[in-house]
Design a protein around this nucleic acid. Structure first.
Lengths: 203, 203
DNA sequence: GTCTATAAACAGATAGAC
DNA sequence: GTCTATCTGTTTATAGAC
């Protein structure tokens, strides 16, 4: 493989990632990907056989952008009240740089949940680890009891949803682009605060 | 118009709603809608001219399922601590009966945000009303100060997201169908509890 | 490796019989 | 109103020249 091969392949891949995440599998056109990459349609098939294979590659790549950080922070050896702000900040930064990938992944997974199967390793969180951390912090009187599924669901929901629902939130709350950007930045503080307040024991 | 006309039209419309919400605009096929309705493809065009017009109808219908309840409860004349559980319960019931519409609407809106334009009346929430309610409850010492955008975002996020992220949540938390159903039912209690705890003034 | 040209399949839409 | 048959444009994919 020459340098040129790799460059073209990467060029195509990046173009494909852009078009697929923006338009979805069904909305994406091989022609548009070729145009975006500045090459010919036939080359897509030369490097990636067909649309499905190209998509699989992109989808796996996007999952890698989205999940490993999640798993690592959530299972790190830190108190919950430190983990949570870390998680939120890192995730909001990732999504600010890739605003469309959350909606893209969740939508494609609903159309075709099997797509998870091949990528399970990157995604699974050790719930028992989180469960035992909760138990020990409850025992120490730091937090109130909470089911790990709900804690994780609350955390992920409040962090990710504003990116998926951007147009609706802007419309419902009457925000423009500038307000929305500020709003997202504020959530780095608001989301951890909301969860931590809800976890504090009643005095 | 005879009875038969109306029946066929409704038959088509329901079939279209099912296929569009399940597959999205780009993934839906006129043939599949016709099959689902048990009629011929040509009839779709007889009743609804083209795919776009049929979709517009369905999309407006889905918005009506999703939004009016939201607006009405959030602007009702009730204390926040009563409004919030009401909102969550009603919304979870709607989404339990229509599990795919939240993801459908948000995705189609991201592909084409202009679709909101024609339906703005159903959707807009009077943020000033909520803002002044927050102010008066803060003044009365019932809640801590909070920006209305963030309160609404937290509420909607935690309520809706678990339906959009169903496959991921099930995978991440290792849930099966039964666990997931129970999990969703539990959220009617957990979500209001989380928000209300986070709003309570520090004693 | 990269291109042009084209095949092959599909999907939306229409014509016209009943 | 409902159907079958068909047209038209689009889209994925391949053949083959360079």
């Amino acid at each position: 493989m020459t340098d040129l091969d790799q460059n073209t392949e990467q060029l195509i891949f990046r173009a494909a990632r852009k078009v697929f995440t923006l338009k979805g599998y069904n909305g994406a056109r091989m022609q548009e990907i070729a145009d975006e990459a500045g090459i010919n349609k036939a080359l897509l098939h030369y490097y990636f056989r067909n649309k499905d294979k190209l998509f699989e590659g992109v989808f796996g790549d996007v999952l890698k952008t989205l999940f490993p950080g999640l798993t690592n922070i959530l299972t790190a050896d830190l108190p919950l009240f430190e983990k949570i702000p870390l998680f939120v900040c890192q995730y909001i930064d990732i999504l600010t740089n890739n605003p469309e990938i959350a909606g893209f992944v969740l939508y494609e997974l609903r159309l075709n949940p099997q797509r998870l199967v091949g990528n399970m390793r990157d995604i699974g969180i050790d719930m028992n680890l989180i469960r035992s951390q909760i138990e020990s912090e409850v025992a120490a009187g730091i937090i109130r009891p909470v089911k790990p599924e709900h804690l994780i669901a609350n955390l992920i929901s409040m962090t990710i949803f504003p990116f998926i629902a951007r147009p609706v939130l802007m419309s419902v709350a009457g925000m423009d682009e500038v307000h929305y950007t500020k709003f997202i930045e504020e959530r780095k503080r608001i989301v951890p605060e909301t969860i931590i307040q809800s976890l504090k024991p009643i005095q």
